[in-house]
Design a protein around this nucleic acid. Structure first.
Lengths: 159, 159
DNA sequence: TCTAAATAGGACTGAATTAGTACACATTCA
DNA sequence: TGAATGTGTACTAATTCAGTCCTATTTAGA
């Protein structure tokens, strides 16, 4: 249905792992790799990216490690996804300077993308990291007003 | 931010093109290719896929062509995207039979995916094809109750 | 009944992207 | 000073995707 790269999956996994402990606690790349069962170099790469995006803080040197810069309920899935998928152009045309695209000035693709992006982004902004750290029991997310909304996890076509 | 393949973009474009005329009218692959400025073989491929997904009906032979099976306001973007992106496993693990994944039984990746998919799908189900066929002026989509909701198309980081 | 126009289906290829690895360097603390 | 840890860059292998081509089938009309 919607394609999140493997890296993004791992990233969410790593972030939730960090989110499970107290905010101040430091986690080394090695520890996270073991706990998440993801190869160390890959975790390391992820952590660097998340650091650069300002979602993590790092301490170097022996006894170093990574920690969240905010509480889990203040970090949205949208932020993590944005960080890892990059400021992504949906297709090359989104990055065109005006005039390059021969469908200009009323490029319908571009409009479609804008609409869809807006909708999807809005949806992901409502899911917070704290919603992901209860592995088995989540059945609701927060709506715009912070109220819990039922999420149907009914069996069925999952795409 | 979210990656829809080029094919999906084209697909939405083609679908909206068909949706612009009356439901009964037939459109040949050639016509659609010209109007959408997408290569004919590509359009042809798209149409076949959309046909198999039950979103289009076809008439063979000379004077043949494709038409929508439902009114544009009854076809959601989610349906078109599902049809074109395939019954997509977000990562390989979504298709595993139980036991293959060593993170079982409480695979957090899987749960994350389920949550995110649910949220995104819900969002895309609210955008109908008819919302895409007003290229320049769309500023609102329908919410769960069918009311128009403002969509902020403010300039800014578009991911 | 023949022909042209159109869909149907599958095989193939080149290119782009991504996941993952490796290595050299920098920093911190005991 | 040395060990543990993060930082940054470059590279490679694998996968996926977009796009093309070819051939069969169906239909309408001359």
């Amino acid at each position: 249905m919607i394609r999140l790269g493997k890296m993004t999956d791992y990233g969410l996994l790593v972030m939730s792992q960090i989110a499970r402990s107290s905010k101040a606690e430091l986690h080394t790349a090695r520890d996270l790799a073991i706990k998440c069962r993801v190869p160390l170099p890959t975790v390391s790469k992820l952590l660097k990216t998340l650091l650069q995006s300002g979602l993590l803080a790092s301490h170097r040197g022996i006894r170093g490690g990574y920690s969240l810069v905010r509480e889990p309920h203040l970090i949205s899935v949208a932020e993590v996804v944005s960080a890892l998928e990059g400021p992504l152009a949906l297709t090359e045309c989104s990055t065109n300077v005006a005039g390059l695209c021969d469908l200009e000035p009323s490029c319908p693709i571009r409009d479609n993308q804008r609409i869809i992006n807006q909708v999807v982004r809005g949806a992901l902004e409502k899911v917070m990291l704290s919603d992901l750290i209860r592995p088995m029991s989540l059945a609701a997310i927060r709506d715009n007003r912070g109220n819990l909304v039922q999420v149907s996890l009914a069996p069925g076509r999952m795409q």
